[in-house]
Design a protein around this nucleic acid. Structure first.
Length: 478
RNA sequence: GGCGCGGUCGCCAAGUGGUAAGGCCGAGGACUGCAAAUCCUCUAUCGUCGGUUCGAUUCCGACCCGCGCCUCCA
């Protein structure tokens, strides 16, 4: 039993394993809480959530730490713009993030450190780095990391220092960054940023004067305090963080601690929306609420965001959401067919959804293997539907159905999918329409089909479609 | 220029050195007064050109096309 996962650093698939007797130490760069998280953010967090669940089902204990970035340029700028204190502002968006996570059925992390609560640890880290010659204070009171002092810089992203420099000079035509002035090299990055007027009240005392920590340093400090300064097993984040954020984390932590920061790097690809890069200016930056207003339940969004390979860009489309909706319904019908065999109601399904995996996944073995093999959610879902296609419930007795439900339930747990939660689009028809529909139903019951069809046509003209069910009818907007 | 991802049925998408999972949509059938819903069945030779091989979509090379990062964006 083991889980295989692609590692960005070695550029190869490696077995994930904790240190003997220890939980797997898993750190994820969390959200910057300066507004509602969008589906792109959630794609990354959801994939991390699925990995964690797969590890749990596989029997690995996981210490999952995901931070809250509540102190950086964006949170400061936005809180000021709204005339709120940083704490008030970030608390609000942190709460909103939690609500969304819960709605998406994400497991809460074991620990959720906040950047602003780790300033003392960050200052200590800077002092250590200065002492060791890896950092220096500039005249204005900012402190920079001396990239040239760390030989391995760039090993994660495979960017050579020389190339970075060349790029900086070429793309800009000239090196003209204002911060540049105080830095020894363009590649050096800020560990501590001297206080500026636009920071408002958001500054802290330090040996180098008032100011605030740099973003990269926050993660290094939180990892250190969350895992006792030990090498962690796994570090996750969006692919964009690979450089410079993670590269800088490595530099800071390894220079301070003289041991590896992390054994295994886990990066997920970004999201496209309808074939275009997601951005505010294109107006295609959706939040969970946006999609809910358009009639897509959170579980549909979850399914859509985890259904593709995590290492490939996912093109998020409304067609895709509809496809997910149908697929999810198919899973629900399957669950129904098994529950019918066991004589249980839908509410019993929850009892089968568990990280406590069966010894044998039976027909679902292929689906489970797919998840353990580099988190192949697409192949997993494919294998699940492959089983469904054979209509296995038909030939099972109650015990057989229960066994299959256990395996199915473990897969649902690993994927974090909940069934029967899709909110029906309950759009109430006006009384007049309801009355016509009722008349039509009565005509149909009386086998006066001419009259029934006439009324149905009339409703259609008024924009409502009748769909007969077993013991009645439903009205949907045409 | 550097690093990286990708081009597989109308759309999404998995995968393997020996003739291609799955989902959506669509089509046909069953059912239904007709529809709907449901159930059953059906649809590809894998960007281009070379090479290796008994055999390549899968390995190697070249090329074309799309996309991401290299500017504190998951």
């Amino acid at each position: 039993m083991s889980v295989q996962l692609y590692d960005t650093h070695s550029r190869s698939i490696q077995t994930l394993a904790p240190q003997p007797g220890e939980p797997l130490r898993f750190y994820c760069c969390g959200p910057t809480v300066y507004g509602p998280a969008h589906i792109g953010n959630f794609r990354t967090f959801l994939i991390q959530d699925v990995l964690r669940r797969v590890l749990e089902v596989d029997g690995t204990e996981v210490r999952h730490v995901r931070n809250i970035t509540d102190l950086d340029d964006k949170t400061i700028r936005q809180s000021q713009a709204e005339g709120k204190s940083l704490a008030e502002f970030t608390t609000h968006w942190t709460e909103k993030f939690h609500t969304d996570c819960e709605t998406l059925n994400m497991l809460p992390p074991s620990l959720e450190p906040s950047a602003v609560e780790h300033i003392p640890q960050q200052i200590v880290l800077i002092e250590t780095l200065i002492q060791k010659g890896h950092a220096y204070a500039a005249e204005d009171g900012s402190v920079y990391f001396r990239v040239s002092s760390f030989e391995n810089y760039g090993s994660l992203s495979k960017l050579k220092q020389r190339e970075l420099k060349t790029q900086n000079e070429n793309s800009a035509g000239a090196v003209n960054d204002a911060d540049e002035y105080d830095r020894e090299s363009v590649a050096d990055f800020a560990l501590w940023k001297a206080r500026k007027p636009e920071d408002g009240d958001n500054y802290w005392a330090s040996p180098w004067g008032e100011g605030r920590p740099g973003w990269h340093l926050e993660c290094s400090a939180m990892i250190e305090s969350s895992f006792g300064g030990q090498t962690i097993d796994l570090h996750g984040g969006g692919i964009d963080l690979c450089f410079p954020h993670h590269e800088n984390e490595i530099a800071q932590s390894e220079c301070a601690h003289d041991h590896a920061l992390c054994r295994h790097w886990f990066h997920s690809a970004h999201l496209m929306v309808e074939g275009e890069k997601m951005s505010k200016s294109l107006g295609n930056l959706y939040t969970l609420n946006d999609l809910r207003e358009k009639g897509f339940s959170p579980m549909i969004v979850r399914y859509t965001l985890i259904a593709g390979s995590y290492r490939q860009q996912l093109n998020f489309t409304f067609d895709g959401l509809h496809a997910s909706q149908s697929a999810l319904t198919k899973l629900e019908r399957f669950a129904d067919s098994l529950l019918k065999k066991t004589g249980e109601g839908r509410e019993a399904l929850a009892g089968y959804i568990s990280a406590d995996a069966p010894e044998d996944f039976g027909r679902f073995a292929k689906a489970w293997d797919a998840l353990r093999n580099n988190l192949n959610t697409a192949a997993c879902l494919g294998a699940i539907f492959g089983v469904l296609g054979a209509n296995p419930a038909a030939s099972l007795d109650a015990d057989g159905a229960r066994a299959m439900l256990r395996a199915f339930g473990s897969l649902l747990y690993a994927l974090g999918l909940e069934l029967f939660t899709v909110e029906e689009k309950q759009i109430d028809a006006p009384a007049e329409i309801q009355a016509l529909a009722q008349q039509r139903w009565e005509a149909k019951q009386a086998k006066d089909f001419a009259q029934a069809d006439a009324l149905r046509d009339e409703l259609l003209e008024k924009g409502w479609v009748i769909k007969d069910r077993k013991d009645g009818f439903e009205l949907e907007p045409g």
